[in-house]
């Protein structure tokens, strides 16, 4: 009896696992007519802004469920190239958008919808008195940055080159939110993150802006995907992001306009 049960269970598991991967974009919750799902793949730094835009879009489109898949841009790009069901892709840098473009996954041309730049995140009150990028090279500071493989890390490298200041970080984190966490928890004295990350962290960290950040401005491109199951809705979401209310939401959390 137990064996049969185990067998049935494993079959169910395998079948449901297979079913999940090719989930078409109309598997809405209600199952009635007109229920459509729009899958938006967006960089993790867009969490707050796109969360607001999701609400707006759903309010304006009856029966439409926007699903945000928020992760590092390079992960999203690989997921899209491996065939994940996505209608819109908003990347935190051009490199990862290019990966999808090169694989033929983009409908038309990607468009830059926002810019972001680095800032120094420090614990509230700035206990170490950091005022400039050069201060980060101090010996007794625990500084955390992004690994050079991810967008915030390559921006950090560009700033280092532009300023001639070489940092010796305690850790090179895999994404910008991990850097922020280390500062929020007080493990790091300072971390290099995006302006928008400090906005979203509220009063848990403070920002020390530095002029050299202008040397490494990140462009955020957005595109409708070639394999989009809901290409019309995807185009409308794309227009919303590039339109006036989209740009307003983005600037509220600290993004620059392209």
């Amino acid at each position: 009896m137990r064996l049969v049960l185990a067998g049935v269970l494993s079959v169910v598991l395998v079948v449901s696992a297979c079913g999940g991967s090719d989930g078409s974009s109309d598997e809405g919750s209600g199952g009635g007519d007109g229920n459509r799902t729009l899958n938006v793949f967006a960089a993790a730094s867009l969490t707050e802004a796109f969360g607001e835009l999701e609400k707006q879009f759903e309010a304006e489109h009856d029966g439409v469920d926007v699903r945000l898949n928020l992760a590092g841009s390079s992960q999203l790009a690989s997921q899209i190239n491996e065939g994940a069901p996505a209608d819109v892709f908003a990347s935190a840098n051009e490199k990862n958008m290019d990966k999808v473009v090169e694989a033929g996954g983009v409908e038309g041309q990607p468009e830059t919808f926002a810019t972001n730049k680095l800032t120094i995140a420090v614990p509230p009150g700035n206990p170490k008195g950091i005022t400039s990028f050069a201060d980060l090279a101090g010996d007794d500071l625990t500084v955390v940055v992004c690994a050079s493989q991810v967008p915030c890390g390559s921006a950090t490298e560009e700033v280092e080159q532009a300023t001639g200041v070489t940092l010796s970080p305690a850790s090179e984190e895999q994404d910008v939110k991990a850097v922020l966490t280390k500062v929020e928890l007080g493990e790091a004295d300072a971390g290099l993150v995006y302006v928008t990350d400090v906005t979203s962290a509220g009063d848990k960290v403070e920002s020390v802006e530095f002029p050299e950040a202008e040397q490494a401005i990140n462009d955020y491109p957005i595109a409708v995907l070639a394999e989009a199951g809901q290409s019309e809705l995807a185009q409308q979401f794309y227009d919303l992001v590039l339109g006036r209310s989209g740009q307003e939401e983005l600037s509220k959390v600290g993004f620059g306009t392209p």
């Binding site: 955390v144 690994a147 970080p169 305690a170 850790s171 090179e172 984190e173 895999q174 991990a178 280390k182």
Partner: peptide
């Protein structure tokens, strides 16, 4: 990665 970080 959470406790020790990531440095070559």
């Amino acid at each position: 990665i959470t406790f020790a970080g990531s440095l070559e």
